[in-house]
Each structure stands twice: as structure tokens, then as C-alpha cells.
Design a protein around this nucleic acid. Sequence first.
DNA 1: CACCAGGTTGACC
DNA 2: GGTCAACATGGT
Length: 221
Amino acid sequence: MKVEKPEKYNHRSLVVGIYNKLFDEFGKQNWWPAETPFEVVVGALLTQQTKWQNVEEAIKNLKQRGLMDAESIASSDIELLEETIYCTGFYRQKAKRLKQISTFFSENKMEEVFSLPLDELRNTLLSLNGVGPETADSIILYAANRQKFVIDVYTKRIMKCLGIEGNYSQLQELFEKNLPDDVDVYKEYHALIVEYAKKYCVKKKCDICPLTGEFNGPDYL
DNA sequence: CACCAGGTTGACC
DNA sequence: GGTCAACATGGT
């Protein structure tokens, strides 16, 4: 799973170097162990601005009530959904969005949607209410199992500590242009960033971040 | 008590 | 393109 690091210093050595350092410290993450791709979609929506621990509880609740498939959620009462996912916060808008997304996937075969050309797939997901860039890319990467690098607030924070700032698409391009064509590397990388950030980058402090200092990323964006 | 958690939206400049 | 308040609960 390790990626060979190029010799001279450039964007690629930075992107690859960070990956290898995180992999050395945290190892394989094996992220997002869901029973079905649909469960990943549900998790991606519920985890917005929410701790994963609470999402797990909501997923457990949904399963207990037989609501872990698109058709069941699409036809279920909005108030029942609200009650079921209450623990994830923003429960009113999330219940509404969850129902809409489930309706979409009950009317469109998930397998076919996930086989669309990458850009088309992404735009389709983005057109759903409640699905922004990060959620769309999480679904593409972890549910559709296709190559899209997920940028989250932690990724932005870490890169900023290294002197690299950019908007979502700029950062995404930086990673995607410098990583090998390997979905598993994409999956592990994002998971590693989250684990790393939860340990070192809380409260926007860069001073205790071990990456800072090791990689002197100039401002390229 | 203040702040954060694996964001998105709609309004506005 | 960028910024900002809402959205809501539970934990530290």
C-alpha cells in the first residue's frame, strides 16, 4: 500500500510524503466498513458536521426499524425518520434529505448511477439536496468505489499548516494529479488524514502538528 | 460556559 | 468566485 516517493522535491513528493508518513504512524485504516453501498450513502449524509459515533447509533436505529434500504426510507414517515436519526443532530433537514436521496435511489438503479462517467456521476449526486462536494466525493469513493479524492476541513487545515491554501477543487486537483491510479490509496489517504487530524490538529493549532516543519510546502495555489 | 464534530444551503456582495 | 448564518445535539 505504500507509494514510492519521487526523489526531487515537488508537489508529488509532498503529497506522497504525507501519505507515507501518516501510513507509517497509523497503518491501514480500512475505513467505512458498511454492509452495503447504500449504507455508505446514508452514513455520508448523516456524518455531516457530526461525530461518527453518533452516526453509528443512527445507523443501528435505522437497521432495527428495517430502514436501511432506499425503498423503505423513501416510503417511511418523515417524523419516524427524524426520531430515528435524532442523535446525529440537524435531524429535521437530515431526515428530509435522507428521504429525498432514498427516493432518488429507489427510482434509479444505484448500480447504473454509479457506472456513469465520473463527472456525470458527481454532478448527479451534487444535484441532490443535501449532497455537497465532500459528501458527493465520499459517496463516489467509498460507495461507488471509484477514484475521487475527498477534501474535508481537516485536509484544508493540514495543508494550510504546510503553507498551501486553496479552494475545494484546487486542493482536490493537487492530490489527484499526484497520486497513483489506485482507489485503495485514495480511500486510505482520506481516512489517514482524518485520524491524524483528530489526534494533532484539533482547534486549528498547527504547532503540535508533526507534519509542519517536516514538509515546507511553498504557496503554490 | 464555549467550542467542536468526517458540511450544505440560500442569501448576498 | 468568496463569506455568512442556519441548521441541532451531545461531548469535553
